[in-house]
Amino acid sequence: MRRGWFLPIAASLGFAFLYAPIVSLVIFSFNESKLVTVWSGFSTKWYGELFSDPQLLGAAWLSLQIAAISASIALVLGTLAAVALVRFRRFKGRTLFSGMVSAPLVMPDVITGLALLLLFVAMESTLGWPQGRGMLTIVIAHATFCTAYVCVVVQSRLSDFDRSLEEAAMDLGASPLRTFFDITLPIIAPALVSGWLLGFTLSLDDLVIASFVSGPGSSTLPMVIFSKVKLGVSPDVNALATIIIAIVALGVLAATILQLRARPKRARG
Protein backbone atom coordinates (compact mmCIF):
# COMPACT_ATOMS: atom_id res chain seq x y z
CA MET A 1 0.00 0.00 0.00
CA ARG A 2 1.06 3.51 -0.63
CA ARG A 3 1.77 5.44 2.49
CA GLY A 4 0.28 8.87 2.74
CA TRP A 5 1.63 11.74 4.79
CA PHE A 6 -1.42 11.97 7.02
CA LEU A 7 -0.90 8.93 9.21
CA PRO A 8 2.76 9.51 10.15
CA ILE A 9 2.08 13.16 10.97
CA ALA A 10 -1.03 12.35 13.00
CA ALA A 11 0.82 9.66 14.88
CA SER A 12 3.81 11.93 15.57
CA LEU A 13 1.54 14.67 16.91
CA GLY A 14 -0.26 12.10 19.05
CA PHE A 15 2.97 10.87 20.56
CA ALA A 16 4.13 14.44 21.09
CA PHE A 17 0.91 15.09 22.99
CA LEU A 18 1.47 11.97 25.11
CA TYR A 19 5.05 12.76 25.98
CA ALA A 20 5.48 16.54 26.05
CA PRO A 21 3.98 17.03 29.53
CA ILE A 22 6.01 14.15 30.93
CA VAL A 23 9.22 15.40 29.37
CA SER A 24 8.70 18.92 30.68
CA LEU A 25 7.98 17.51 34.12
CA VAL A 26 11.24 15.57 34.07
CA ILE A 27 13.18 18.61 32.93
CA PHE A 28 11.76 20.87 35.59
CA SER A 29 12.52 18.34 38.31
CA PHE A 30 16.14 19.39 37.85
CA ASN A 31 15.27 23.04 38.15
CA GLU A 32 17.05 25.04 40.79
CA SER A 33 14.17 27.45 41.44
CA LYS A 34 11.12 26.71 43.51
CA LEU A 35 9.10 28.34 40.75
CA VAL A 36 8.54 25.18 38.86
CA THR A 37 8.08 26.68 35.46
CA VAL A 38 10.90 29.14 35.28
CA TRP A 39 14.25 27.58 34.51
CA SER A 40 17.00 28.94 36.72
CA GLY A 41 19.73 26.36 36.56
CA PHE A 42 20.43 22.67 36.99
CA SER A 43 20.06 21.20 40.44
CA THR A 44 19.31 17.90 42.11
CA LYS A 45 18.36 19.44 45.39
CA TRP A 46 14.68 18.40 45.11
CA TYR A 47 15.75 14.81 44.98
CA GLY A 48 17.64 15.29 48.20
CA GLU A 49 14.61 16.89 49.76
CA LEU A 50 12.51 13.97 48.65
CA PHE A 51 14.64 11.48 50.50
CA SER A 52 14.56 13.47 53.69
CA ASP A 53 10.77 13.62 53.84
CA PRO A 54 9.75 10.86 56.28
CA GLN A 55 6.04 11.19 55.48
CA LEU A 56 6.66 10.63 51.79
CA LEU A 57 9.06 7.77 52.38
CA GLY A 58 6.67 6.08 54.77
CA ALA A 59 3.81 6.39 52.33
CA ALA A 60 5.95 5.02 49.53
CA TRP A 61 6.97 2.01 51.61
CA LEU A 62 3.36 1.34 52.58
CA SER A 63 2.25 1.61 48.96
CA LEU A 64 4.93 -0.79 47.78
CA GLN A 65 3.93 -3.36 50.40
CA ILE A 66 0.25 -3.04 49.58
CA ALA A 67 0.97 -3.31 45.86
CA ALA A 68 3.09 -6.43 46.25
CA ILE A 69 0.62 -8.23 48.50
CA SER A 70 -2.51 -7.34 46.58
CA ALA A 71 -0.90 -8.17 43.23
CA SER A 72 0.05 -11.58 44.61
CA ILE A 73 -3.45 -12.31 45.91
CA ALA A 74 -4.90 -11.09 42.64
CA LEU A 75 -2.49 -13.32 40.72
CA VAL A 76 -3.84 -16.44 42.41
CA LEU A 77 -7.50 -15.44 42.26
CA GLY A 78 -7.31 -14.05 38.72
CA THR A 79 -5.54 -17.12 37.39
CA LEU A 80 -8.10 -19.44 38.97
CA ALA A 81 -10.92 -17.32 37.56
CA ALA A 82 -9.33 -17.31 34.11
CA VAL A 83 -8.89 -21.10 34.17
CA ALA A 84 -12.54 -21.48 35.14
CA LEU A 85 -13.76 -19.12 32.43
CA VAL A 86 -11.67 -20.55 29.63
CA ARG A 87 -11.79 -24.21 30.55
CA PHE A 88 -15.19 -24.80 32.07
CA ARG A 89 -17.55 -24.20 29.21
CA ARG A 90 -20.70 -24.60 31.23
CA PHE A 91 -21.36 -24.32 34.92
CA LYS A 92 -24.10 -22.92 37.07
CA GLY A 93 -23.83 -19.17 37.40
CA ARG A 94 -21.16 -18.80 34.73
CA THR A 95 -22.67 -15.57 33.42
CA LEU A 96 -22.83 -14.06 36.88
CA PHE A 97 -19.29 -15.19 37.55
CA SER A 98 -17.86 -13.72 34.35
CA GLY A 99 -19.77 -10.51 35.05
CA MET A 100 -18.36 -10.32 38.57
CA VAL A 101 -14.85 -10.91 37.27
CA SER A 102 -14.91 -8.28 34.55
CA ALA A 103 -17.11 -5.60 36.10
CA PRO A 104 -14.40 -4.17 38.40
CA LEU A 105 -12.43 -3.34 35.22
CA VAL A 106 -14.85 -0.61 34.26
CA MET A 107 -16.54 0.14 37.56
CA PRO A 108 -15.93 3.81 38.40
CA ASP A 109 -13.42 4.03 41.24
CA VAL A 110 -15.69 6.13 43.41
CA ILE A 111 -18.33 3.39 43.42
CA THR A 112 -15.88 0.61 44.17
CA GLY A 113 -14.29 2.63 46.95
CA LEU A 114 -17.57 3.65 48.53
CA ALA A 115 -19.01 0.13 48.27
CA LEU A 116 -16.03 -1.50 49.92
CA LEU A 117 -15.88 1.09 52.65
CA LEU A 118 -19.56 0.61 53.45
CA LEU A 119 -19.00 -3.15 53.47
CA PHE A 120 -16.07 -2.88 55.86
CA VAL A 121 -18.04 -0.61 58.17
CA ALA A 122 -21.03 -2.94 58.10
CA MET A 123 -18.82 -5.99 58.68
CA GLU A 124 -17.06 -4.34 61.55
CA SER A 125 -20.30 -3.50 63.31
CA THR A 126 -21.83 -6.94 62.77
CA LEU A 127 -18.86 -9.33 62.71
CA GLY A 128 -16.25 -7.28 64.51
CA TRP A 129 -13.87 -7.74 61.58
CA PRO A 130 -11.93 -6.02 60.10
CA GLN A 131 -11.11 -3.88 63.08
CA GLY A 132 -10.70 -0.37 61.83
CA ARG A 133 -9.34 0.40 58.42
CA GLY A 134 -5.81 0.54 57.17
CA MET A 135 -3.41 -1.59 55.22
CA LEU A 136 -5.55 -4.73 55.39
CA THR A 137 -8.64 -3.09 53.95
CA ILE A 138 -6.63 -1.39 51.20
CA VAL A 139 -5.06 -4.71 50.29
CA ILE A 140 -8.48 -6.37 50.06
CA ALA A 141 -9.83 -3.56 47.91
CA HIS A 142 -6.84 -3.54 45.58
CA ALA A 143 -6.73 -7.33 45.29
CA THR A 144 -10.37 -7.25 44.20
CA PHE A 145 -9.94 -4.96 41.24
CA CYS A 146 -6.50 -6.32 40.33
CA THR A 147 -8.05 -9.80 40.11
CA ALA A 148 -10.08 -8.56 37.17
CA TYR A 149 -6.97 -7.32 35.36
CA VAL A 150 -4.97 -10.47 36.02
CA CYS A 151 -7.94 -12.53 34.85
CA VAL A 152 -8.15 -10.65 31.54
CA VAL A 153 -4.43 -11.06 30.85
CA VAL A 154 -4.33 -14.75 31.76
CA GLN A 155 -7.60 -15.45 29.98
CA SER A 156 -6.30 -14.15 26.68
CA ARG A 157 -3.17 -16.28 26.99
CA LEU A 158 -5.14 -19.37 27.98
CA SER A 159 -7.63 -19.05 25.17
CA ASP A 160 -4.97 -19.28 22.50
CA PHE A 161 -3.31 -22.09 24.36
CA ASP A 162 -3.21 -25.37 22.43
CA ARG A 163 -5.34 -27.71 24.52
CA SER A 164 -3.71 -30.73 22.99
CA LEU A 165 -0.54 -29.89 24.95
CA GLU A 166 -2.41 -30.61 28.16
CA GLU A 167 -4.08 -33.63 26.66
CA ALA A 168 -0.68 -34.92 25.60
CA ALA A 169 0.60 -34.63 29.16
CA MET A 170 -2.40 -36.48 30.54
CA ASP A 171 -2.07 -39.05 27.82
CA LEU A 172 1.50 -39.62 28.99
CA GLY A 173 0.30 -40.27 32.53
CA ALA A 174 0.14 -36.88 34.24
CA SER A 175 -2.84 -36.15 36.48
CA PRO A 176 -4.76 -32.91 35.84
CA LEU A 177 -2.98 -31.12 38.70
CA ARG A 178 0.42 -32.37 37.59
CA THR A 179 -0.40 -31.27 34.04
CA PHE A 180 -1.25 -27.80 35.29
CA PHE A 181 2.09 -27.40 37.03
CA ASP A 182 4.23 -29.14 34.40
CA ILE A 183 2.70 -27.79 31.22
CA THR A 184 0.12 -25.06 31.68
CA LEU A 185 1.93 -22.96 34.24
CA PRO A 186 5.32 -22.74 32.50
CA ILE A 187 3.66 -21.85 29.22
CA ILE A 188 1.42 -19.13 30.64
CA ALA A 189 4.19 -17.86 32.94
CA PRO A 190 4.84 -14.70 30.88
CA ALA A 191 1.16 -13.81 31.15
CA LEU A 192 1.31 -14.37 34.91
CA VAL A 193 4.32 -12.08 35.19
CA SER A 194 2.65 -9.33 33.21
CA GLY A 195 -0.59 -9.84 35.15
CA TRP A 196 1.26 -9.42 38.42
CA LEU A 197 3.13 -6.36 37.18
CA LEU A 198 -0.10 -4.84 35.95
CA GLY A 199 -1.73 -5.43 39.33
CA PHE A 200 1.29 -4.01 41.10
CA THR A 201 1.31 -0.78 39.10
CA LEU A 202 -2.44 -0.33 39.33
CA SER A 203 -2.35 -0.76 43.09
CA LEU A 204 0.57 1.62 43.36
CA ASP A 205 -1.35 4.15 41.32
CA ASP A 206 -4.73 4.06 43.00
CA LEU A 207 -5.86 7.17 44.79
CA VAL A 208 -9.64 7.05 44.91
CA ILE A 209 -10.32 3.59 46.28
CA ALA A 210 -7.51 3.85 48.82
CA SER A 211 -8.86 7.19 50.01
CA PHE A 212 -12.18 5.54 50.83
CA VAL A 213 -10.94 2.42 52.55
CA SER A 214 -7.82 3.67 54.31
CA GLY A 215 -7.83 4.63 57.92
CA PRO A 216 -5.94 7.19 59.98
CA GLY A 217 -2.19 6.78 59.69
CA SER A 218 -2.33 4.65 56.58
CA SER A 219 -1.89 7.17 53.80
CA THR A 220 -0.61 5.67 50.59
CA LEU A 221 1.81 7.44 48.27
CA PRO A 222 -0.88 8.68 45.85
CA MET A 223 -2.84 10.08 48.78
CA VAL A 224 0.17 12.04 49.97
CA ILE A 225 0.96 13.23 46.45
CA PHE A 226 -2.64 14.28 45.94
CA SER A 227 -2.72 16.39 49.05
CA LYS A 228 0.56 18.04 48.01
CA VAL A 229 -0.60 18.62 44.46
CA LYS A 230 -3.89 20.15 45.57
CA LEU A 231 -1.82 22.89 47.13
CA GLY A 232 -0.16 23.60 43.81
CA VAL A 233 2.82 22.44 41.81
CA SER A 234 5.73 21.48 44.01
CA PRO A 235 9.19 20.65 42.75
CA ASP A 236 9.73 17.65 44.99
CA VAL A 237 6.67 15.98 43.41
CA ASN A 238 8.38 16.58 40.07
CA ALA A 239 11.41 14.74 41.37
CA LEU A 240 9.29 11.90 42.70
CA ALA A 241 7.43 11.65 39.39
CA THR A 242 10.73 11.51 37.53
CA ILE A 243 11.94 8.63 39.67
CA ILE A 244 8.70 6.69 39.16
CA ILE A 245 8.73 7.35 35.42
CA ALA A 246 12.33 6.20 35.19
CA ILE A 247 11.61 2.96 37.03
CA VAL A 248 8.51 2.22 34.96
CA ALA A 249 10.24 3.10 31.71
CA LEU A 250 13.11 0.74 32.50
CA GLY A 251 10.68 -2.00 33.47
CA VAL A 252 8.55 -1.68 30.36
CA LEU A 253 11.66 -1.42 28.20
CA ALA A 254 13.07 -4.61 29.72
CA ALA A 255 9.77 -6.42 29.26
CA THR A 256 9.55 -5.34 25.62
CA ILE A 257 13.10 -6.43 24.89
CA LEU A 258 12.44 -9.81 26.51
CA GLN A 259 9.29 -10.18 24.46
CA LEU A 260 11.06 -9.25 21.24
CA ARG A 261 13.76 -11.79 21.97
CA ALA A 262 11.20 -14.48 22.66
CA ARG A 263 9.23 -13.66 19.54
CA PRO A 264 11.07 -15.46 16.74
CA LYS A 265 10.71 -18.63 18.80
CA ARG A 266 7.00 -18.30 19.21
CA ALA A 267 6.49 -17.45 15.57
CA ARG A 268 7.87 -20.82 14.57
CA GLY A 269 7.00 -22.94 17.56
Partner: peptide, 23 residues
Protein backbone atom coordinates in the same frame (compact mmCIF):
# COMPACT_ATOMS: atom_id res chain seq x y z
CA UNK B 1 5.35 0.17 23.91
CA UNK B 2 5.38 3.95 23.60
CA UNK B 3 1.59 3.95 23.86
CA UNK B 4 1.54 1.67 26.88
CA UNK B 5 4.41 3.32 28.72
CA UNK B 6 2.49 6.38 29.96
CA UNK B 7 -0.32 4.08 31.06
CA UNK B 8 2.07 2.39 33.43
CA UNK B 9 3.38 5.62 34.87
CA UNK B 10 1.19 6.97 37.58
CA UNK B 11 -2.18 8.28 36.47
CA UNK B 12 -2.08 10.90 39.17
CA UNK B 13 1.36 12.08 38.13
CA UNK B 14 0.28 12.36 34.53
CA UNK B 15 -2.60 14.59 35.51
CA UNK B 16 -0.15 16.52 37.62
CA UNK B 17 2.19 16.85 34.66
CA UNK B 18 -0.65 18.47 32.74
CA UNK B 19 -1.14 21.09 35.41
CA UNK B 20 2.48 22.11 34.99
CA UNK B 21 1.87 22.28 31.28
CA UNK B 22 -1.29 24.31 31.20
CA UNK B 23 -0.94 26.74 34.10
Amino acid sequence: MLVVLPFFTSFLLRVYALTGFMR
